[in-house]
């Protein structure tokens, strides 16, 4: 099988790393060769963050370049726009409609673009937009936004609910597990 590429993009602190680890665990159980590339250190501090998950028969490079991603999971609108050029032609983007202002917008040096979702759709990309923060808060914690997004994503994959939940159990700390599972199920149901 040709190598498939998934990008998880968002703002440092949103839990993109955990999401990529859960996806990695699901794919490993699916019998694929998997590489997950993470970013640690300075860039994590509220900056634009990106992690890569690649899978197939044999994966070489752990990174994804422009025009190579089959799927982008975006935790934030501006980040979706920023990383759009990485999407392959005909690729899909699942996006959380949350807006987090970057520092140049906060200080007034730049403007947050309007109507990002509509503009993304006009590029011809396959866009699924959801308010995952609302789902996460409904489940009990805004912090579960990452797992809520996975719930949305999971509805269109070859892997069943059990496989995803096993991966969530492996990666999410015990005390946050119930809320995360709830967020996952709520989001998956909405998507079906």
């Amino acid at each position: 099988m040709e190598t498939k590429a998934i990008m998880i993009v968002g703002v440092g602190g949103q839990g993109t790393l955990l999401a990529s680890r859960i996806i990695g665990a699901v794919l490993l159980e699916g019998g694929y060769d998997v590489k997950v590339s993470e970013v640690h250190g300075m860039s994590q501090r509220g900056g634009s963050v990106v992690t890569y998950v690649k899978y197939g028969d044999k994966v070489y490079s752990p990174v994804i370049e422009k025009g190579e991603a089959d799927l982008i999971l975006s935790f934030e609108e501006l980040e979706a726009a920023r990383w759009l050029p990485y999407l392959k032609k005909g690729g899909r983007m699942v996006l959380n409609t949350q807006r987090i202002n970057p520092m140049p917008v906060i200080t007034g040096a730049a403007e947050y673009p309007e109507e990002i979702v509509e503009k993304l759709k006009k590029t011809g990309a396959d866009i699924t937009a959801v308010d995952a923060l609302k789902i996460a808060e409904e489940a009990g914690s805004a912090k579960a936004v990452n797992v809520a997004l996975l719930g949305v994503l999971s509805a269109n994959t070859e892997f069943g609910e059990e496989v995803w939940e096993r991966a969530i159990e492996k990666c999410v700390p015990e005390k946050a597990l119930e809320i995360n599972k709830k967020a996952f199920r709520l989001a998956r149901e909405i998507q079906k």
């Binding site: 501006l78 050029p85 970057p102």
Partner: peptide, 28 residues
């Protein structure tokens, strides 16, 4: 991989464009 493809094989990957300036998001 795409850098090497371009430098060695002269191949470039096509990509989509948002068509607008996107404010940077530096770490804070």
């Amino acid at each position: 991989q795409s850098y090497l493809k371009e430098k060695i094989l002269g191949e470039k990957t096509e990509s989509l464009d948002f068509g607008e300036n996107i404010p940077v998001r530096p770490p804070v």
